[in-house]
């Protein structure tokens, strides 16, 4: 049986509930909160400031460092060991690469912009949620950047393209209510600049056909545009601007 109805009753191209807020951390230069379904992320930005690891200084342009951290109590299962692990290192790196080409720090030689992403509660799509929060926080800190970025996970569940997977959908064979036709689940985190075809993040877990992948990218692009609208609203709300 092909996936007909989603486990949480959403439409196939419907996102989970999104909430965005800017300026939540007082001591940071820029900060934001982003929530999608049960995944919550706080991002804070410090800088541009002096980079004291002098071997890392770049006299042509400033650099950006990102740190992704899941809090010990954030997972659905047991306690996550605090501190870094291989997974958080990888996600920190891909987040850094998303913003490396997006922000312009040529005005700030030898300086650094630090981004910290903390996740107090996670379901699925935590790296996408973190990137959405970080892009809001960077804009709030006044860093020159090409655009805000909308990140979202798309995927293939039982031969059907879906957007914004939950934990149950990522492990569909375990949680399926009906008989399943295909064991394969694909999970593709994406990051788009709104209104363009430029992809800043594309990773994949699982198996997907070429046709489905192209379809998934199209769906993801539309979802990223929706996220962009929410981000714009959140930023303007901070300055009490109604539109």
């Amino acid at each position: 049986m092909v996936y007909k109805k989603r486990l949480d009753g959403r439409k196939f191209d419907e996102l989970r509930d999104i909430e965005a807020k800017v300026g939540v951390i007082k001591n940071a230069d820029g900060s934001a909160f982003f929530k999608i379904g049960n995944t919550h992320a706080y991002a804070s930005v410090y800088g541009p400031k002096k980079l004291y690891t002098r071997s890392m200084q770049d006299p042509k342009s400033g650099i950006i460092t990102c740190k992704y951290n899941m809090m010990p109590f954030s997972g659905a299962g047991g306690r996550v060991r605090p501190g870094g692990n291989r997974r958080s290192k990888e996600i920190s790196m891909v987040t850094e690469n998303v913003f490396k080409d997006l922000i312009d720090l040529s005005e700030y030689p030898n300086a650094v912009v630090e981004v910290y992403i903390e996740l107090p509660q996670t379901d699925a799509g935590s790296r996408c949620c973190g990137i959405c929060a970080a892009s809001l926080a960077l804009a709030d800190a006044g860093i020159p950047m090409k655009s805000l970025v909308g990140a979202i996970a798309v995927g293939l569940v039982d031969e059907k393209v879906v957007v914004d997977l939950t934990y149950e959908e990522e492990h569909y064979p375990e949680f399926a209510k009906d008989k399943i036709t295909s064991e394969h689940v694909a999970d593709i985190p994406l990051a788009f600049i709104p209104g363009s075809d430029k992809i800043f993040l594309l990773q994949m877990d699982g198996v997907i056909s070429k046709k489905s992948l192209i379809e998934a990218l199209e769906v993801g692009k539309k979802a990223a545009d929706k996220i962009f609208d929410i981000q714009v609203k959140a930023l303007k709300e901070k300055y009490n601007v109604e539109e």
Binding site: D29, G30, K49, D140, G142, I143, M145, K146, S147, Y239
Partner: peptide
Amino acid sequence: VFASRLGILRIKEEDNFIYLVPLTGV
């Protein structure tokens, strides 16, 4: 024309010039 940072839009009508006054930043 796209904005590249958070700020307030200023327009000089007479010489078709637009610029941005930043709201935040160092």
